[in-house]
Design a binder for these strands. Sequence first.
DNA 1: GTGGTCTAGACCACT
DNA 2: GTGGTCTAGACCACA
Lengths: 128, 128, 128, 128
Amino acid sequence: MVKIDKDSHRPFYEQLVIGIKEDILQGILEPGDQIPSVREMAKILLMNPNTISKAYKVLESEQVLVTVKGKGTFVKQVESRPRDLRRIEELQQQFNELVIEAKHLQVTETEIKQWLKEAEAKLGGNEA
Amino acid sequence: MVKIDKDSHRPFYEQLVIGIKEDILQGILEPGDQIPSVREMAKILLMNPNTISKAYKVLESEQVLVTVKGKGTFVKQVESRPRDLRRIEELQQQFNELVIEAKHLQVTETEIKQWLKEAEAKLGGNEA
Amino acid sequence: MVKIDKDSHRPFYEQLVIGIKEDILQGILEPGDQIPSVREMAKILLMNPNTISKAYKVLESEQVLVTVKGKGTFVKQVESRPRDLRRIEELQQQFNELVIEAKHLQVTETEIKQWLKEAEAKLGGNEA
Amino acid sequence: MVKIDKDSHRPFYEQLVIGIKEDILQGILEPGDQIPSVREMAKILLMNPNTISKAYKVLESEQVLVTVKGKGTFVKQVESRPRDLRRIEELQQQFNELVIEAKHLQVTETEIKQWLKEAEAKLGGNEA
DNA sequence: GTGGTCTAGACCACT
DNA sequence: GTGGTCTAGACCACA
């Protein structure tokens, strides 16, 4: 479950965001589950509570978590919500740049397809 | 050719780096071509010369450009250099995170394959 | 009757307060009616009695409910009490902010008027 | 221009968010304008830079501002973006509750219509 | 107990 | 100069 690489250039809170999303896709966290409180998680990951809180708020704004003051933070029940086209477009743009980078590193199309296969396998074919 | 999106969160210099790499893959820039000087490019893109300079330095460090003192900056001859496994691994990690994002945005595996096809088409199948 | 939205950011007790006020405006609750005791209501709504108690206290302070020792809590007789100008002013300020939000969400003046019409219809034109 | 009421129950950063939105609707701030830097604004309002930053980030997530690292924060060019139905629905719900509150304060439908007229006048009929 | 807000102050990346 | 991240620690509101 969620690991933070303190040497990564990626901000801690973003690593936590992606980590929790991964846990959900893998079924480690399920809709309705309560996730560790801000203070608990801070102790577990040896981080400042504010940083954890920031990650939780991002996830809430992305409709992944819900937080109830005084009770805690929970994995949201997935209602089939409309696809966020703006963000999908951004992601595709990011994907294109990744492909450019890959070709410059002499990674072939076949290899990228293989990456995709591996990623899907790791996420167990679950839906968000 | 290279376009800078002022509203993007990606640093200008990174946009420039990726833009030049794309131009090379598309054959707009070819090995041996001279590219505009830092000052010229700064005028063209209405950016600070320091920013252009930073981009060029990154591209030199990645063996994409060479600067010849007194002559200018050129697109490097493609030599089959050894694959940089560390950077490829990083890229795959980045790819995995992108897939996690995609699934949370309800983008299917099929759609990602389509993205890949489109990206390859756009880059004309050229090699770096 | 009163429904609590667990996913709302509004505190439970406030949701209860507004819910009871709505019931009164709709005539579901009438002056003189006894409302469930704190403990009963807590069972009905699956909430902590403290939370119910807090809501009742707010409603008492706002002259909506009265508690008679040993008998229970009742909907108060409508007396034409003086308008609380301070609170009305606050409400108007809140209304202004709501309009600002609305305009940024591209909601037109006409639509807001429609909202008002719908709200009035739902409340059946009864007076508190 | 933007005033913060330190005695209000509303968080400072939310007051700032609504204040900037109002300035835009009134035409005090126009698309493309640079707004005071986080540090400047902090000095002006006698607040901590982090709090200002939080407000700016909220406004960016709502597509009202764009921030460019190293350059500053700007009022976004309004592209006619799709209406965010989820947020509009939330706002209507909030509106309904406001009407309930109003009726309990003996505010009439006519008065609310008057409030709306005044609000529109104040915002000068500009579009977001 | 829970999360939310705010301050103070450090350090980093980008222009 | 700009904004972004992170920590430490205080205080408040809700359940």
